[in-house]
């Protein structure tokens, strides 16, 4: 084998190795998305609260020695004109007890719309100790023009909540997902059927 052809072989081998790194990094970036979610779930960072929780009232007793204040905040995403607010701005609860609060929502537009609420919790260290057995955020809301709704949310603050956490802020952002999800067939409206906007 001549020196030149050996060098050409070496170059080819290097290029193959480097191309492998490139492909590997492509897989890595694709894996970053689930890894990111997993990381946030494990650490409770990001203030994402968990899905439906099964609560057996017989097994736990409320910790009556302390009260935790839970504040509720609501906002609507840009371009979302629904009315959306909590019936109570804040409640004081004993860790370990089940509580129900409700949120008011009204479709102020003249067309049927679907909404999705996304929760976020501060401080994030409390996220894993905040359980919801029932929440409107687990599903989407389809509201007719002018329709209003009381949406219940049942939650338990875990007894294991760190002692230094005295108040928890739970915020909901309401997003318009009508286009993304799509209205059911019978509710599709054509341009000439659009009724004038009511309310506002």
């Amino acid at each position: 084998m001549t020196v030149e052809s050996k060098q050409q072989n070496d170059i080819r081998r290097t290029v193959k190795k480097l191309a492998l790194i490139v492909v590997g990094m492509c897989f890595f970036v694709a894996a970053l998305v689930p890894l990111y979610d997993l990381f946030c779930e494990v650490t409770g960072l990001n203030g994402k609260t968990g899905g439906p929780y099964v609560f057996d009232e017989a097994k736990t007793s409320p910790d009556t020695t302390r009260l935790v204040k839970v504040n509720f905040l609501t906002n609507t995403n840009e371009g979302m004109s629904w009315d959306f607010w909590p019936q109570k701005g804040a409640v004081r609860v004993h860790p370990g007890s089940a509580n129900t609060v409700s949120f008011y929502v009204k479709n102020t537009t003249g067309r049927p719309m679907i909404a999705q609420a996304i929760p976020s919790l501060v401080p994030s260290s409390a996220a894993e100790f905040f359980h919801k057995t029932e929440c409107f955020c687990f599903e989407q809301q389809l509201l007719q023009p002018g329709e209003e709704l009381e949406m219940p949310m049942r939650f338990i603050v875990d007894r294991g909540l760190p002692k230094n956490v005295q108040s928890i802020n739970l915020s909901y952002a309401l997003f318009d997902v009508t286009e993304r999800v799509g209205l059911p067939e019978d509710m599709q409206i054509t341009d000439n059927q659009v009724s004038p906007v009511t309310g506002g």
Binding site: V22, M25, C26, F28, V29, L32, V33, Q116, I118, D176
Partner: peptide, 26 residues
């Protein structure tokens, strides 16, 4: 560079193919 390519590809999918990599509503 593959990481950047991945990021813009996710943007492309969010814009044109209805995914929600970066959209909290989805």
């Amino acid at each position: 560079m593959p990481v950047l390519a991945g990021a813009v590809t996710m943007m492309l999918f969010d814009i044109h193919f209805n995914t929600s990599f970066f959209n909290a509503a989805g």
